[in-house]
């Protein structure tokens, strides 16, 4: 994962980052800068944007479907704004967790493997703030990833299909402006839903110096959680899985909006962030940093 940019440039970044670290917020900004200057980040966002584009082009070329496929797919030909919803339904199980797992899993282990971690931690203030900043950066990436899918879906939908008032799940119709507002809410919902996974990835990332291992473990966990969520034998466990509310974003497409799942999702993710944040702190603050 450490492509050519890490070693030579990391030293330069390091100088900047150590200078700004005392400011705190500056450290966060420089971390964001590092994240969004990486080609890998843009490649992942590009791949996510390709999901709605592929869906829209495929529907456009085949002129609708036969009623099969993911939810909302058959609505696309009537209203292009549904491309974003369909793309989210498709991306949530795998693509979004995959990219979030890469960013979160890489957060600490990536620095360790690039031998920049110990330089970052030379100053006496460090480990807690480093964890917080890494988590905040991962959260910003969650938002960027979700907004990318939504925005690409809306744009390609507008380009290829007629756009008009949107029919909600309840059968009521809302204006284009309100539906865009709801799309934004959905992006926020999905972002919040991915925070628990980000915290898990951050914790796993403190366990190892091999970023690939941490990324893979995070992605595998997200798949395991979803498989457990499908089995009726583990029904008692379902409400405690971080993936439990992922597809409930559709509650924002009802009339009136059903807010309860938004709150439950936020509470669940908060619990995951608290638990795995504490674990990450314990592990990272007691770790011998050798690289």
């Amino acid at each position: 994962m450490s492509l050519s940019e890490t070693t030579p440039r990391a030293q330069g970044d390091l100088e900047q980052r150590r200078a700004r670290r005392s400011v705190g917020f500056g450290f966060f900004l420089s971390e964001l800068g590092l994240l969004f200057r990486r080609r890998r980040t843009w490649a992942m966002l590009g791949a996510l944007a390709a999901v709605p584009i592929l869906i829209a082009v495929a529907i456009r070329l085949t002129d609708g479907g036969d009623g099969r496929g993911p939810a909302f797919l058959d609505r696309i030909t009537q209203n292009g704004l549904f491309v974003a919803m369909t793309a989210l339904v498709v991306s949530i199980p795998l693509f979004l967790p995959l990219t979030v797992g890469v960013v979160a899993g890489d957060s600490i282990a990536g620095e360790a493997s690039a031998s920049t971690l110990r330089y970052l931690l030379v100053a006496p203030v460090g480990r807690i703030r480093l964890l917080l900043v890494k988590f905040a950066a991962a959260a910003v990436f969650c938002l960027a990833a979700t907004v990318t899918v939504s925005l690409a879906g809306i744009l390609i939908g507008v380009a290829l299909f007629p756009v008009g008032p949107v029919t909600l799940l309840s059968g009521d119709t809302v204006s284009v402006a309100e539906s865009l507002g709801r799309s934004l809410l959905i992006a926020v919902y999905v972002t919040v839903g991915l925070l628990g996974l980000s915290a898990i990835g951050l914790f796993i990332s403190t366990l190892t110096d091999a970023p690939v291992g941490a990324m893979a473990a995070t992605v595998v966990l997200s798949i395991v959680a979803q498989v457990l969520g499908q089995l009726s034998q583990t029904e008692w466990l379902h409400p405690w899985l971080f993936s439990y509310h992922w597809l409930d974003f559709a509650d924002l497409l009802r009339q009136p909006i059903e807010w309860s799942s938004f709150g439950e999702n936020a509470l669940l993710q908060l619990a995951y962030v608290a638990v795995f944040g504490a674990l990450a702190y314990a592990r990272f603050s007691t770790k011998d940093i050798l690289s």
Binding site: A274, V275, A278, Y281, A282, S285, T286
Partner: peptide, 15 residues
Amino acid sequence: KWQRWVPAVAVPAVV
């Protein structure tokens, strides 16, 4: 070192 593990035990307990 063990004190740093206190939150890791306490937070799940609080949850």
